[in-house]
């Protein structure tokens, strides 16, 4: 189960809407061993594509060094789907490489850049197997 503050969910959704129709991506880092997402880090989608995302390689190195320095891990790795449901695609599964992370998908296909209903779901992706999990929202 993913337990996450409402403000962090809002930050991911705002990012997804801002980048629509391209996919948005980023991480929420948290203390190593805590499983608690805390520090919101939106990333640039270097693919700038409605069907693909990739963290820029230089940004990726800086992100992991920064997390190392702070004893953090990527608790949440999020990205948006802009024309399909919030379910991991085949490429999402084949490139997933953080078995301890919660992979959060946000679909903006219904409302695009506008406010309104959105779909947000969370998964574990381990050795090619996708398992959906419950998301519990905390106030704040």
């Amino acid at each position: 189960m993913l337990v996450i503050r409402r403000s962090l969910v809002d930050a991911m959704v705002t990012h997804a809407r801002a980048d629509h129709p391209d996919e948005a991506c980023g991480v929420i880092a948290g203390p190593d061993g805590s499983d608690r997402p805390e520090r919101f880090v939106p990333m640039v989608n270097s693919a700038r594509s409605p069907t693909f995302y990739e963290f820029d390689s230089g940004d990726l190195l800086r992100l992991y060094r920064d997390m190392d320095d702070r004893d953090e891990v990527p608790v949440v790795i999020y990205h948006s789907h802009t024309a399909t449901e919030a379910y991991p695609s085949r490429t999402d599964v084949s490139y997933a490489s953080e078995p301890a992370a919660h992979y959060v998908l946000i679909s903006t296909r219904e409302t695009g850049t506008e406010d309104g209903p959105y779909e947000l779901r969370s998964y574990r992706i381990v050795d090619g197997a996708v398992t959906e999990e419950e998301v519990r929202f905390l106030a704040g």
Partner: peptide
């Protein structure tokens, strides 16, 4: 600090006390 793709890939020369970091891309569709 440099992605080896912007250096000489697998042929990139390595010097004593260099540091190598391996990171899987964070990517998907």
């Amino acid at each position: 600090d440099e992605d080896v793709r912007f250096l000489d890939g697998l042929k990139t020369p390595i010097a004593d006390a260099d540091s190598i970091t391996i990171l899987p891309a964070v990517a998907g569709g």
